[in-house]
Structure formats: C-alpha cells, structure tokens
C-alpha cells in the first residue's frame, strides 16, 4: 500500500487517489502543431528511479498532486500541489 502525504488532507492510502500520468510533460499550446502534441502525448520515458507523476485525490480534497516516486521501491520523495497558487496557500497554512 503506497501512502501519500496529501498537503491538504494528510497521509492517506493510495486507494483514495487516482494515478494521473507523467508530471514532467509540458503540454503544448492548443494551436501547437501536431508534431509537438504527438511528442507530449505518446513519447514517454520508462524511468527506473525517481519519477515525477500526477495523482488526483479523488476521494479526498480533489486536488491534483505532483508526486516524486521511486519506480523501484515505491518510496515517495515529495508531494506538492500542482496548482501554484494553491500550493502557496497550503505551504503557508500547513
């Protein structure tokens, strides 16, 4: 059972969350050419080690989180809120 420290809710079981995807992807502008979008959508590293990924606290605060997780051990290095403004608020209040 992976346990994720949600900055808003505290440490919870991974069953409360939904895995999103690769958090390191910079999605292109909507009017960017097909080639850029193809890269963003289909090209993925198969990382052995720490991977940045998004998790949605679906059965909790509904925040999307950026999690650094080891793909070897499931160890979680860091968790932060994806949205920069909300991230600032959670940091100052928690």
């Amino acid at each position: 059972m992976i346990r994720i420290k949600c900055p808003y809710c505290g440490e919870r079981d991974h069953s409360e969350f939904t895995y999103g995807g690769d958090a390191s992807i910079k999605y292109p502008e909507l009017d960017a050419p097909e080639s850029e979008w193809t890269k963003a959508i289909f090209f993925r590293e198969n990382i052995r080690g720490i991977q940045k990924e998004t998790w949605h606290h679906t059965n909790g605060c509904r925040l999307w989180l950026e999690v650094e997780r080891s793909t070897i051990t499931h160890e979680i290095k860091s968790v932060k809120v994806c949205h920069p403004q909300i991230e600032k608020i959670t940091k100052s209040k928690l």
Binding site: T18, T54, R62, W64, C82, H83, P84, Q85
Partner: peptide, 13 residues
Amino acid sequence: MSWLEELLQTRWT
C-alpha cells in the same frame, strides 16, 4: 469532472 479539474489545476493554472 476529474478531467476538468486536471486541466484547471495542472495545465491552465
């Protein structure tokens, strides 16, 4: 619902 939240929280902040 999750998709809209993802867009607003991760892409179009």
